[in-house]
Design a protein around this nucleic acid. Sequence first.
DNA 1: ATGAAAGCGCTAACAT
DNA 2: ATGTTAGCGCTTTCAT
Lengths: 333, 333
Amino acid sequence: MVSIKDIARQAGMSASTVSRVANGKKHVSSDKRQRILQLIEETGYVPNKAARAMVLKKTSSVGLVIPDTFNIFQRELFSIIERSLESFGYYTMFFFSKFEDISEENCLNKLKAENLDGIILLHEMKNSAFYEYLNKIGIPAVTATFRFPGIPAIHVNEEQAAADAVNHLVSLGHRDIVMISGDGFTFGRQRADGFFQALTEADMDLDDNRVVFVRNYTAEFGMYGMRELLLRRGGGRNFTALFAATDELAIGAIRGLQDAGMRVPEDVSVVGFDDVDISSYVIPRLTTVRQPIKEIGEQTALALHRSITGNSVVPEDQILPYRLIIRESTRAV
Amino acid sequence: MVSIKDIARQAGMSASTVSRVANGKKHVSSDKRQRILQLIEETGYVPNKAARAMVLKKTSSVGLVIPDTFNIFQRELFSIIERSLESFGYYTMFFFSKFEDISEENCLNKLKAENLDGIILLHEMKNSAFYEYLNKIGIPAVTATFRFPGIPAIHVNEEQAAADAVNHLVSLGHRDIVMISGDGFTFGRQRADGFFQALTEADMDLDDNRVVFVRNYTAEFGMYGMRELLLRRGGGRNFTALFAATDELAIGAIRGLQDAGMRVPEDVSVVGFDDVDISSYVIPRLTTVRQPIKEIGEQTALALHRSITGNSVVPEDQILPYRLIIRESTRAV
DNA sequence: ATGAAAGCGCTAACAT
DNA sequence: ATGTTAGCGCTTTCAT
């Protein structure tokens, strides 16, 4: 590894001068600057980040905490955030965390060791120790797609969005609607709440048997959820519509339906949530709730940047607009 | 941030003693050790990684270079690698890179600044400067899913696997087979080569018009590719089977077929590649080539670990077995 | 404009 | 067993 001293020695100057050049500071004669620049170019010298972080007491890095088993939506989101953060000059470090105490503790320790400038959570924590730590050291933090008291959040109104999705089904004449949701994230609960709210407003029967909560928001568990629903309802001909808490869940559920000899949307209408890439290509194309993923990502990065630099207003919660995208998986009863 | 000095001061001992305890070294009396451990617990002290890296001259971190627009297969793979690396005690840093000179240069600079213990590439580089750098500084490196001369690689025989996929189609009686592949990764070329090889062996016509290369390996581009193919073939009734270079491409292509009024597998059989999660849930379930993703990930981490510790044989190229998974998207003509 | 020196948090070598 | 010291690569006073 070529260090600042190597450059200084080769140039016959001091490390200070090299440092000034490397950081674009003034007060260096242009001939020396030229010479050093040339040496940097030749040797491919790049300042060591660890050493820099130590003296500067900041890392220009932000930590992005994401679920260990992130779904397609979350994957798209973190790419956007990463790119956006980069445009502000931050380097993004990813921290994968399971929804378990031990994994969270592990994640927290890694985070602590890094001396980050800020933290973004895409993923709520089971253990409040995490939030307490953020609070205690006063590190800038932002949450995306969910909120936690005291931390600025960027998200949509999950409950309302879910209710709207269900209302679409109701407006199509469906009277017997079921739902598959999941554990581990608040949005699973919120979307289920929206579901019940819409049912209530439509004056429909809302026994708990209408919702099954599965372990993961994936296609695999969507299929299991559907099997469970079919079992509960004794073969299933008695519901005509399904609301799935994510598009992946919806895709798996449609598979389960198909396996049981039911077609979508002829026999059962299905609405998903997220409007993930693949949703507009599967058969049938999915009716779903589109989250403004680009805006969520960009606003999250911006809010954190503001919070880090501190030279503008403290960012507040931002609730962004969603949109119901009607495609082929729903139809009138 | 609580530092080693804070602990030392509170304990009334020297930093060395605290360091010894924090690193589980011997030669500390058990009462002092107790006291320090307690303090560490209370304060939540975690050694600063940057400072540690500086004196140790190693970071216990490995860089994982992945494509900016990673597909589902690559996403699954990097999770596995990350977990596996963690079990060896490494922290993984992700570096997203586009297949462009500037992005690669950017990525290389970040890499250099980090002083990594090793590097894993999931993604080939356009510019050879990248490989030259690895070589020059002699940093341990491993490539996964592709190979570059001089760097140990973990991968399947892409060409042979593709040929097998096509042979399956041939054995089903298909005589007019087309393909959608992509740019930017060698595997796109290799899978196309396997396609041509199988066609040759089956003594079939192999004009270049049979393959369309799209820009990305996503469902979106799979659909575009199919449209292009349909255009070329004047409406399309004259091919009965498709080989898609990835499952996502296959899903998009099936959508394109469906939109043109053709059904899979009744009118056209489709084979994908990768056996991504979603492939066993979509309609129709995809026939595809399964890469041993878990083994690829684990062997990659292991090979790098060996290369870093240097206390075992230098790892060599490993070619892992693939498997053709026959599901619903293919049938006899 | 330039260099010398101090110090960031940590570990290891060297005393004691 | 424990403390003192030096030094990792860098930036930033502070002299000159």
